[in-house]
Every structure is written in structure tokens, then in C-alpha cells.
């Protein structure tokens, strides 16, 4: 276990270092996963590029149509930010159940995305919100859809020299709401056995204008349940319709058996939690519950 820690003074310095060290380099944000992986000897980076000092990456900005979340925004910052108390509340709901306060005080949104764990809580609402990721390289900056960015468990389309700089989330239209639900064996400190994020927009007649459903921990990456989304769009959201969406989502996922749960149970959870998350969105839109 031997490496050098670099403390770049700017984002461009950080990216230049990453470019120089290529596969031997690794960005260090909160470190809540990276340091554990290094200590478990699953990762042997020679150069850690510490982003902690780059205040410009911490900002959460309201840019009119969209919200720009700096990669270094902590889970605590998301949880506490008033921008995520309305239609985007699923993000705060997800951030609030990541680890304990100690982890949320340092763990970052950028790290959560770049890590690409299929069980990452914050990724589910971002996917349901069709977030986009801004990647900065030494030569160019590009903006990609989060769903394209996630390539597999622990794998993304980020190049060695590229930094996850920001995540952009479009503000949903009026009569929209989001919700996030998570199941684990305990009520805190859990890696999701299943997590579900939903985003719903209703038209004036109360029909579903748009639905987005993201599922965590049931496939190689956090996934969208598109068949369920299509079945909802244009429909009046009766209990039966919501239940059918749950069944469609459960049918579309590819869970595995592991020490945390069986594939069978995970599928049943998807079937249960998808309608529940959608129902919560409906309640939020109709203002019955915030």
C-alpha cells in the first residue's frame, strides 16, 4: 500500500494530473468508499488526486431550468438544501439514508455516481430525473446522460483523465413529484436490498403525463423500468394500474441472490415498492401529503 496524494489547486490541475497518471491515478473525493477499497487491497492506485480543496465543485446552483450539483456536494448538503424539498424531494430522501451522519458529512454525489454501485441510493432518483453528467477532461468537457454514463457494476464511460464535474437535473414541469423508497434489513446504515425512485407528472385531467421509474440493486447498474413507465403514461392512476406497473417493473429487473437477499425477495420488493413510490408521488402532487 503505497501511493502519493496530490492536492491540485484547481479543477484544471486535477484533470491534468489525472491525464498524466492515467490508470494509475484516482480521484479522491469524500473517500468513503475509496479508502475502504484500498485498505481491503481491492484497489492499488499509485496516485490519489485529492479534490477536497476544490471549493468550486461543492456548489449547488439553481440555473433556472435546471439545478447544477457540483460533484463534491455532500449527501448532507443535498439533504439540507431547500432546492430538494419540493418536486425533487426524492434526492433528499435518498441522500438522507446513505450511511450515517458521519458518512453523509463527507460522501459526495460525484463519488456516488463515479463509483457506479448498482445499489447507490442517490443514483436512483438522479436516473428517474434523467440527470446528465458533466465530464471534464484535459482537452474537452462533455455532457452525457447518466443512464449512458453507467456501464456496469463499478464501471462507467468516464475516461481515465476525466473528472465528474457536475450533475445537472432538469426541473420537472408543474404537477410533478418524486419519491424514493429503500428496503434493507435494518432501518439505518443499510446498503439497499432494493431501492426505487419515481418521478411522476400528471396532466390537468389527473392522467399520467410522464412517469420515470428507477430501480437500484436489481441489475448490473441502476436501471429504468421502461415498460412500467410506458404502461402508466396516459393512464388514470388507479390502484390496479399502479400494481400493474409494479409487476412490469419486477418482470424487467435482473436481481441476484446474495447474502443480503434472494433474487425472489428483491423482485417482490420491486413489485411492492414501485406502486408505493408512485402513489406517494400522486399524493404529493395532489397536495395531500408533502
Amino acid at each position: 500500500m503505497s501511493f502519493t496524494v496530490h492536492h491540485p489547486a484547481s479543477v484544471s490541475d486535477a484533470v491534468a494530473l489525472a491525464e498524466r497518471y492515467g490508470a494509475d491515478g484516482r480521484f479522491l473525493a469524500g473517500g468513503t468508499d475509496l479508502i475502504i477499497q484500498i485498505h481491503r487491497k481491492r484497489l492499488a492506485s499509485q496516485h490519489l488526486i485529492d479534490l477536497t480543496g476544490l471549493a468550486e465543485l461543492r456548489a449547488i446552483e439553481d440555473a433556472g431550468d435546471e439545478i447544477r450539483i457540483g460533484a463534491l456536494a455532500t449527501h448532507k448538503a443535498i439533504e439540507r438544501n431547500p432546492l430538494f424539498q419540493g418536486a425533487l424531494v426524492a434526492l433528499a430522501e435518498a441522500a438522507r439514508v446513505v450511511g450515517g451522519h458521519q458518512v453523509r458529512n463527507v460522501g459526495t454525489v460525484g463519488g456516488n455516481i463515479a463509483n457506479a454501485s448498482p445499489a447507490a441510493d442517490v443514483v436512483a432518483p438522479l436516473l428517474a430525473l434523467e440527470a446528465e453528467v458533466v465530464l471534464q477532461g484535459a482537452a474537452a468537457t462533455r455532457r452525457v446522460r447518466l443512464r449512458d454514463f453507467l456501464a456496469g457494476p463499478g464501471r462507467t464511460m468516464r475516461g481515465d483523465g476525466e473528472l465528474v464535474r457536475e450533475v445537472h437535473v432538469a426541473k420537472p414541469p408543474p404537477r410533478s413529484a418524486t419519491a424514493f423508497l429503500k428496503a434493507g434489513r435494518r432501518k439505518a446504515m443499510e446498503i439497499s436490498v432494493v431501492c426505487v425512485a419515481a418521478r411522476l407528472t400528471l396532466d390537468d385531467a389527473g392522467r399520467c403525463a410522464a412517469a420515470r421509474i428507477a430501480l437500484g440493486a436489481v441489475s448490473a447498474t441502476t436501471m429504468r423500468a421502461e415498460a412500467a413507465e410506458r404502461a402508466l403514461e396516459g393512464a388514470l392512476l388507479t390502484d390496479d394500474v399502479l400494481r400493474d406497473a409494479g409487476r412490469l417493473a419486477a418482470g424487467a429487473c435482473h436481481p441476484i441472490d446474495d447474502v443480503r437477499a434472494s433474487a425472489r425477495y428483491r423482485r417482490l420488493l420491486v413489485e411492492a415498492l414501485v406502486p408505493r413510490a408512485l402513489a406517494r408521488c400522486v399524493e404529493r402532487i395532489s397536495g395531500r401529503r408533502s
Partner: peptide
């Protein structure tokens, strides 16, 4: 591994797990 919290200290006033902080 930041699961138990007994290593908690304050960093700039905020509780953090000192076991996973370089």
C-alpha cells in the same frame, strides 16, 4: 470501514469517521 462510528471526530465541526479519512 465507517460502519460502527467509534472513531468519530469533528472535522471543521462536523462528525466524520476518522478511520476512512486520510
Amino acid at each position: 470501514e465507517a460502519e460502527c462510528g467509534v472513531c468519530t471526530v469533528l472535522l471543521d465541526g462536523k462528525a466524520v469517521n476518522s478511520c476512512i479519512l486520510l
